[in-house]
């Protein structure tokens, strides 16, 4: 059975399957032996599938909600750790760096903009920056930050639309032909140099880009 139909039918039934912990064993050498489809199967059984985590991050910002942080931690910390290990960190460095990433999530919660990024996207960018710092010992120049001021915030509707767009993207990535999927993964886990990255990934990024562009236009308008 196709993995998507499995996932949808499970959601329709309201099936609540306890969160399976998928232990990622070993370092870089072993992850390449892990087939992507196996990793996806584990995620289907994740009870947090479809959850956006936007409310939890905002609760940290508005009232330092430790319960919301604990929930975010149990979902994202193991994922950040696996990402760092796939990018070449050993288990000890990955553990330490993950704790720093999650602490940064707390201190920068006010900067999360759900009209431009999903929680996973935003946490990915924090983890990537920390890993460049920890693994490659390089400075990471970042673009000027554009943030909403206290008097204007992104509207719920555009935040919701963006979150849905990220869901669509996740589906599209899971449906990529194996060859292209592997290329995309290798690019993001640091296996490809910039001259080896190919533009023809088959990723449908047009719609999500347009959504983000609209959010940026609104933000620019507010900043004027």
């Amino acid at each position: 059975m196709n993995m998507l139909t499995k996932q949808i039918s499970a959601e329709e039934k309201g099936a609540s399957i306890g969160q399976m912990s998928y232990a990622f064993v070993g370092g870089m050498s072993s992850h390449r032996k892990t087939s992507p489809s196996k990793a996806r199967d584990v995620n289907i059984q994740d009870r947090n599938r479809g959850k956006t985590w936007v409310a939890e991050i905002q609760a940290i910002h508005t009232h330092q909600d430790q319960g919301a942080f604990a929930a975010l931690f149990s979902h994202f910390a193991p994922r950040v750790k696996a990402f760092l290990m796939k990018s070449g960190a050993d288990a000890a460095l990955a553990e330490e760096t993950t704790q720093e990433v999650m602490a940064t999530l707390w201190t920068k919660a006010h900067m999360f903009d759900p009209s431009r990024a999903s929680a996973a996207t935003w946490i990915f960018t924090i983890a990537r920056n920390r890993s460049i710092d920890a693994l490659r010992k390089q400075r990471r120049p970042e673009p000027e930050e554009l943030t909403w001021g206290p008097e204007a915030e992104p509207d719920q509707e555009s935040a919701l639309a963006l979150q849905q767009e990220c869901e669509h993207l996740a589906r599209a990535v899971s449906e990529l032909p194996e060859k292209q999927r592997v290329l995309v993964e290798r690019a993001y886990f640091g296996d490809l140099s910039h001259s080896e990255i190919a533009a023809e990934t088959g990723l449908p990024l047009g719609t999500i880009k347009s959504r983000i562009r609209l959010a940026l236009d609104r933000l620019r308008h507010e900043l004027k």
Partner: peptide
């Protein structure tokens, strides 16, 4: 802003890949 939006969409791919695997924390 055009390239900023394109960059955020590539970051979204990173977010999708982040969700795929997990490793037990200490």
């Amino acid at each position: 802003d055009e390239c900023r939006a394109r960059l955020h969409s590539f970051d979204a791919v990173g977010g999708v890949l982040l969700e795929e695997e997990s490793a037990s924390m200490a």
